[in-house]
Amino acid sequence: MIGFLTLLKREIMRFLKDAIDTIAPPTISVILFLLIFGVGLGSRLGDVHGVPYIQFMTPGLLLLAIVRNAFLNPAYSLFQARWYGNIADFLVSPLSVEQIALAILLGGVARGLVVGALVLVAAWLLTGITVAQPMWALGYALAVAVAFAGVGCIVGLWTRGWEGVGAIDTFVLDPLVMLGGVFYSLEMVRGVPLIEPLTALNPFTYITEGFRAAMLGEAEAHVLTGLVLTLALGVICVGVVIALFRVGYHLKA
């Protein structure tokens, strides 16, 4: 257990010691989104589903912060350790491959939740938002962080270059999240060509709506729909990560 906790501590210290590059930028960018789209433009949009627009978009932004940070930490940590070769420090230790995989994955979960908590505090200060169902919201945030930290681990193992992580972030995660109802509800884009079908087909829409339901108390989708989707994604990703570590994918020659 000491070995596992040491590696987990390493993964957490890795982003905490470099907070100016890891924690500050995503927190500041979400605060800017809140200020510009929420406080600025949002005041002209009126209420959405009975809440001011800024409060409506806050759960989506929170989810965006959790997803990206939970993904980026293990993706870069794993690839960096492979690139510089210090992954061998863990692989020649008595840690089991499952312990290594889980410690790196949980490091991503920790970063996702730390940034998420900071964004929530900022949102509360700016909008006075409160969480309608705290336990559901926390469980949701945790499940999302686990699922996307799993995606990060898979990408960190798969990529052969630094650009691989950025490419997945830009070409997969960003469109998935941006077209997943962070800034709008399905109702708001009803009849809009391309956007409506893309949003309706995007599983992330139901994850966002579920989280919105947990935070605001109401949304277009039931809280359980998104949670079931998130848990399924999490189970698949964690399973794939452990399987890849067991076979030594891009870890052992």
Partner: peptide, 10 residues
């Protein structure tokens, strides 16, 4: 210290 930790040393 971290390397010792990976080997389970308190």
């Amino acid at each position: 210290i971290y390397q010792a930790g990976y080997f389970g040393i308190p």
